[in-house]
């Protein structure tokens, strides 16, 4: 008896998991260490040197780095405005795709009949190269925002649906049994048990689709050149005019946008899943 008490006392005095601010400080401090940033910095430097040498030898393969910087510096608002348009399309498409996927995930996890009906359609949709739909959508909807939103939403839809649907079903049998015995209603089970269990799966899906949403928006823009704006349009116009520096400046901005979106999801995930083991391990 006393032995057990002592054992548990040891367990209960182990340090509490550190609070969020101190954890963040810890992460920043760790990131500041040369061991963390040095390898990446070295690799980046090597790549930039290779790029620069290539651009000197073969200027039609890669533009000189300086020219990319120059076009960005000369007209930054041009890039910001077009990036903003692409970002809006991506985020709105993301919102639609994720919302529909969440609703359907709940529906198919609650109603087996719907599951049988919807899953095959979703799978076929997933193996269809959605990028190829974009021109058809432009024919149907014109040069407005609709084709961009539809393509983005479609691309985003499937990974979220699959992840959340499996997440909602990932509740351990013993947990389900406990709450079934006290007859939790379907809604109570969903809200208190299934949805929280699905959150890690949701975030795994979001990490995939946040950057993907930009791909969707850009591809749709490229399918409707001329009349529209956005970085995809900028890229296709610039490449048909052989303005490589503009192409790569746009690509750089897109890459930064993608990274930004990924950072946003990761931050949200840390907040929502502080209890989740994999998130905790990721912090270490």
């Amino acid at each position: 008896m006393t032995a057990i008490r002592a054992r548990d006392a040891v367990a209960s005095t182990t340090p509490q998991r550190s609070s969020a601010p101190s954890r963040r400080r810890g992460r920043l401090a760790a990131a500041a260490h040369p061991r963390i940033w040095l390898p990446f910095t070295v690799l980046l430097a090597v790549l930039l040197v290779l790029w620069e040498r290539t651009s000197v030898d073969m200027p039609f393969l890669l533009p000189p780095l300086a020219s990319i910087g120059e076009t960005l510096a000369n007209d930054p608002m041009y890039y910001v405005e077009n990036a903003w348009i692409t970002l809006q399309e991506a985020l709105l498409g993301l919102l639609i795709g994720v919302a529909v996927a969440l609703l359907l995930a709940v529906a198919i996890s609650e109603v087996r009949l719907l599951r049988r009906a919807i899953m095959p359609v979703a799978v076929v949709l997933n193996v269809t190269p959605l990028v190829a739909i974009a021109p058809a959508l432009v024919v149907a909807f014109g040069f407005g925002p609709e084709p961009k939103l539809i393509v983005t939403a479609l691309i985003v839809f499937f990974p979220v649906l699959i992840n959340v649907a499996s997440g909602l079903r990932s509740v351990p049998a013993a947990v389900l049994q406990f709450y079934t015995v006290i007859r939790a209603s379907r809604l109570e089970m969903l809200w208190h048990v299934r949805v929280p269990y699905a959150l890690p799966y949701l975030f795994a899906g979001l990490k995939i689709v946040f950057p993907l949403s930009i791909v969707g928006a850009v591809v749709a823009e490229m399918s409707a050149p001329g009349a529209a704006e956005g970085l995809g349009t900028v890229i296709s116009l610039a490449s048909s005019n052989n303005r490589l520096a503009v192409v790569y400046a746009s690509i750089l901005v897109l890459a930064l946008m993608g990274s930004l979106l990924l950072a946003v999801v990761t931050g949200l995930e840390r907040r929502a899943l502080h209890w989740h083991e994999s998130a905790a391990r990721g912090n270490a």
Partner: peptide
Amino acid sequence: LVPQQPALLPW
């Protein structure tokens, strides 16, 4: 019910 596994909600 007390199942074999504690079946607590981890969050």
